[in-house]
Simulated scan of single mutants.
Amino acid sequence: MKTTLSHRIYTSVTQFPENWEDLAVDNIFLTKEYLEILEKSAPVNMTCHFIGIFNNSELVGIAVSQFLDLNQLDSFGDRDKCIKSSIRKIVFKNFCSHVLLLGNNMLTGQNAWAFSTKIDVKILQNEVLNAMETLKEQYKASGKKVHISSLKDFETEEIETFHPAMKKDYFQFSTQPNMVFTILENWKTEQDYIAALSKKYRDQYKRARKKADGIEKRKLGLQEIIALEEEIYNLYYHVAQNAPFNTFFLAKNHFRVFKEILKDKFLFYGYFIDNKLIGFNTLIKNGTAMDTYFLGYDDSIQKEKMLYLNMLYDMIAYSINKGFKEIVFARTALEIKSSVGAKPIEVYGFIKHESKLIDKCTQTIFNYLEPKTDWQERNPFK
């Protein structure tokens, strides 16, 4: 039968074709369950679209797209008080405020699409690009012109399969790497991990654990998350606000909705001193991988108790005990994640400005405005 591709764009998981899950089987972030969370609790400045690619009437590809309206943000993150940061805000507000993204801006890694193996991947990618053009036209008709189109986050071997149009029309960039922790097969308990550390990093582990005396860690259920929603959001917002750059802030009900829908696949750990919540972290079970998600903490206690480092050790211990093969620690805090054993994996994005004049300067502008991170990779193992 002749290949005749078409696309459909959905705004709700209730509209999905029945066999959507067949293509999402290897990635929880493309499943109906997770996409329902985006539908019900996306950041206020984000609109999510879900794309189905069809060969005649057969579903052969699925993809996720997000429209970001940066004009709705009061702040892009306030950590860096400098002229470059101020210029970045002005540029984004005036020339880059409407961003159409293929992928998921709330995650690190290739969560943009999944395809059937029946059809050449380049042909399917081209139809996804056609769907992006459809979305641009829809936004233009509604009075919101897309300024920037972007795709994220792809590893080197994935880029080798890209349709030529992507490499030709988009500027390829790389920012912070994805920090991934590999769990060795012979590690069955946390003690196996500790035994593999060199003396310097075993001492770091012992020091962090000693500092955490007096902190109670608890796995929270839905009702506890709901009861602590205000405190949780304040801790999250403090961390997000102090990031070097943000394009969204989570909705206050985000963690509640996550727990309601994903249930035991979503883990929420609270850290308490005298029954007061002073920090939290979240994890998502994604097949054999454990994905770290958002966290929050009281900064003064974090430093005193080495809370963030203890959270990393807790994530490692849980993942080893439960038989996971890797932990996706994502971006940010690269050096401390490296110090517990995570390794950097370069991921690349693609970007183009819809103004041809500005697009010619994209590389220069991007290199100037993108926050640079200087860090030293560590090797904590013997």
Rank of each mutant, 00 (worst) to 15 (best):
K2L: 10
K2N: 14
H7V: 10
R8A: 10
Y10D: 03
S12V: 03
W20E: 10
E21R: 04
A24E: 02
V25D: 07
E33K: 13
E36F: 07
E36P: 03
E39R: 12
A42H: 13
H49M: 12
H49D: 13
I53N: 02
G61E: 01
S65R: 02
Q66W: 04
L70D: 06
F76W: 07
G77V: 08
D80W: 12
K89Y: 04
I90E: 09
S97R: 12
N104F: 07
N111Q: 05
Q125R: 02
Q125D: 05
T134L: 12
L135N: 07
Y139K: 11
S142N: 12
G143L: 03
G143N: 05
K144A: 14
V146E: 09
S149Q: 15
S150H: 07
D153F: 03
D153H: 06
E155F: 08
T156R: 10
T156L: 13
E160S: 13
F162G: 02
A165Y: 13
A165G: 06
A165K: 15
Y170W: 05
F171V: 09
Q176R: 08
N178T: 05
E185I: 01
E190I: 11
E190F: 15
A196P: 01
A196M: 10
Q204T: 15
A208P: 06
G214R: 09
I215Y: 12
R218L: 10
K219Y: 14
L222A: 09
I225K: 06
I225T: 03
E229P: 04
Y233E: 08
Y233P: 01
N234T: 14
L235Y: 06
L235I: 11
H238Y: 12
N246V: 11
L250Y: 14
K252E: 13
V257N: 08
V257M: 05
K263P: 07
Y269S: 09
Y269N: 12
Y271H: 14
G279V: 02
F280Q: 02
F280L: 03
N281F: 14
N281Q: 11
L283C: 05
I284C: 08
T288C: 08
M290I: 15
T292V: 07
G296E: 01
Q302K: 15
E304L: 13
Y308K: 03
Y308Q: 09
Y308R: 12
I316L: 06
A317D: 13
F324G: 00
I327P: 00
F329G: 00
T332F: 05
L334D: 01
I336N: 02
S339P: 07
P344I: 00
Y348T: 00
F350C: 03
K352H: 06
S355D: 10
S355Q: 05
I358L: 15
K360W: 07
T364Y: 10
L369R: 04
L369H: 01
E377Y: 13
R378C: 07
N379K: 13
F381G: 10
